[in-house]
Simulated scan of single mutants.
Amino acid sequence: MLIVAALGGNALLRRGEVLTAENQRANVKRAAVALAELIKAGHSLVITHGNGPQVGLLALETAGPDGAGLPLDVLGAETEGMIGYMIEQELAGILKDHRFGTLLTLVKVNADDPAFQRPTKFIGPVYAAETARKLAAERGWKVAPDGEKWRRVVASPAPQAILEADVISLLVRQGVTVICTGGGGIPVVEGRDGSLQGAEAVIDKDAASALLAEQLGADMLLLLTDVDAVYADFGKPAARPLSKIDLSAVDESQFPAGSMRPKIAAAARFSRDGARRAAIGRLEDAAAIVAGAKGTIFSVEP
């Protein structure tokens, strides 16, 4: 079975952890153990991952006195290479006779996507409200509340095409486990002459992963995070895990916009015809989710 496994931010940084190389590597080790079980079970695997904390921190570190720094598409490429390297290195240490490849992945977006006018994608560290407003004024950022704290927000246009999908498919057919489309991929827009230019944006990783799974003809989209399942009434006393979600009845607006809603939308998109499976669950439970024993499975009820 061909599985596209999308790693959430917890694969590299758990909630409350400082963004250091040591913390990232320790978390990648745990992710690699879970993913290696799927490969050992005989599945073909394509791995995607988030980059929100990393790309935001790099943007902060590379900004000059005038607030200008490297554009987000370049920072996206940097983080895709860095994170992909860590994942590949750890997996190769577990499965020494298996072949892996990390691929920088361009993802086409529309230059006129309304998301460029309404930034919503959180990146970088969290700040107190006063600090966030100061940074926004100094650097020309947009900021928004993320829970009790504030973070920078950037444009998150909808992905239109994974430009390296054919290359990824070729590698998969040769038995290579591919790590790609990191951070939603590198956003590019196509000019009238066919040239590609980077876009100042960060694409949603789950949306890009669902599109990649479609283009590859994958059998399953596996969205791995730090909660064991999708919860009804999340954050309330009556909260309860859902083992299955009926796509004909699900209301995406019932779920938190900044966390679970993009995953619900991606899973629904991929499995909407009922012929393909999508699931959401905890990274450590990856093998059990594929087996149908844990997590939340998306289905179309007859």
Rank of each mutant, 00 (worst) to 15 (best):
A11S: 09
A11W: 03
L12F: 15
L12C: 11
L12E: 02
R14M: 07
G16N: 11
E17G: 10
E17H: 10
E17I: 05
E17C: 11
V18F: 05
L19K: 00
T20S: 15
T20Y: 07
T20A: 11
E22G: 09
E22M: 04
Q24S: 14
Q24R: 13
R25A: 14
K29R: 15
R30H: 11
A31C: 08
A32P: 08
L35H: 10
L35D: 04
A36L: 06
A36W: 09
E37D: 15
E37Y: 01
E37T: 09
E37H: 11
L38I: 11
L38K: 06
I39P: 02
A41N: 09
G42I: 10
G42V: 08
G42K: 06
G42T: 06
G42H: 08
S44T: 01
L45C: 07
L45V: 15
V46R: 03
H49F: 02
N51D: 01
N51T: 00
G52L: 00
G52A: 07
P53L: 01
G56F: 02
L57Q: 12
L58C: 02
A59L: 10
E61G: 00
E61A: 12
A63K: 06
G64A: 15
G64N: 13
P65E: 13
D66C: 04
A68T: 12
P71R: 07
L72E: 05
D73H: 15
V74I: 14
V74Y: 09
G76W: 01
G76I: 02
G76F: 00
T79L: 02
M82K: 07
M82F: 14
I83S: 04
I83M: 03
I83C: 07
Y85I: 03
Y85D: 01
M86N: 05
I87R: 03
I87E: 04
E88S: 08
E88V: 11
E88F: 00
E90P: 05
L91Q: 06
L91R: 08
L91I: 06
A92I: 00
A92D: 05
G93S: 11
G93A: 11
L95C: 10
K96W: 09
H98Q: 14
H98R: 14
H98M: 06
G101E: 08
L103G: 01
L104S: 11
T105C: 11
L106S: 10
L106G: 01
V107C: 10
V107A: 09
K108M: 11
K108R: 15
V109S: 05
V109A: 08
A111N: 07
D113L: 12
P114E: 08
A115C: 04
